[in-house]
Computed example of a mutant assay.
Amino acid sequence: MKEIKAIIRPAKLLEVTEELHAIDGLPGVTVSEIKGFGKSRAQNAQDKIVYEMVELVPRIQLEVVVDEDMVEKVVSVIRKHAHTGTAGDGKIFVSTVDDIIKIRTNERGRAAI
């Protein structure tokens, strides 16, 4: 199993989530509002906010856990629909998930996705 974390522009959330929703068998997506900065330190970002003298840019973080055979499809959808071609489009991280436990049923592994 793999976890895909993507940091994208808030303006791209609807487009990306609609396309993810259309993927057959996708177990779900977690969406969080986040703030941060990248290599440019948010200096030239038009949507930056200043918090205690630190410039931050609002972004959305998507988290998805899928079987390995779905990773490329999910990554491809995010790359295509989050892309604007300008600095600050975001990042996608793919990591291995060792185990999952579904709290309600106590199922583990793939059954818990």
Rank of each mutant, 00 (worst) to 15 (best):
Q43V: 12
K35T: 11
F93N: 08
I113L: 15
E68G: 13
I103G: 08
K91Q: 00
P10S: 07
L56G: 10
N106V: 02
R104D: 15
Q43M: 08
L62Q: 09
Q43A: 11
D67Q: 06
K91H: 00
G88N: 05
K35D: 03
K48H: 13
I49D: 05
I103H: 09
A42Y: 01
T17R: 03
V71H: 12
G90W: 02
E68V: 11
I60Y: 00
E18P: 04
E33K: 11
R110D: 15
V77E: 07
L62H: 05
D47R: 13
V66M: 07
P10T: 04
T105P: 10
R79E: 11
L20W: 09
D98L: 15
G109I: 11
Q46S: 12
A6W: 01
E68W: 09
K48S: 02
T30D: 08
P58D: 07
G109S: 13
M1L: 08
H81R: 14
G88R: 04
I60W: 05
M1D: 03
R108W: 05
R41L: 08
D89M: 06
S95G: 13
K80R: 15
V65W: 04
I92V: 15
G85N: 12
E15W: 09
G90V: 00
H21L: 07
K73P: 04
S40V: 06
E107V: 15
D47L: 13
G90F: 00
I23Y: 11
T17E: 07
L26G: 06
K80D: 13
K48Q: 14
E15T: 10
D99S: 15
V77K: 03
G90N: 01
E52A: 13
R59S: 01
S32V: 10
G25Q: 05
Y51G: 06
S95T: 10
G90T: 01
V74G: 05
K2Y: 15
I8E: 00
I78M: 06
I7G: 00
T30P: 02
L14M: 12
R9Q: 11
G25C: 09
N44A: 14
S76P: 08
K39Q: 11
V29N: 11
D47F: 12
P10R: 05
I60R: 01
A45I: 02
S95P: 04
Y51T: 12
R108A: 09
D24P: 06
L20H: 04
D89F: 04
Q43G: 02
D69H: 15
I101G: 03
E15K: 14
V71F: 07
V97T: 12
K2W: 11
R108Q: 15
K5N: 11
M53H: 09
A45G: 09
S76H: 08
V65D: 02
V50T: 12
G88D: 03
K12H: 07
V16W: 03
S76L: 05
I4N: 04
I23Q: 03
I7E: 04
T86H: 15
D67S: 14
I23P: 03
E107I: 04
G36R: 01
A45H: 08
M1P: 01
K48I: 06
G88S: 04
P58E: 03
V57R: 04
M70K: 13
V54Y: 13
K48L: 07
V97N: 12
V57Y: 09
A82R: 07
V71E: 05
S32R: 11
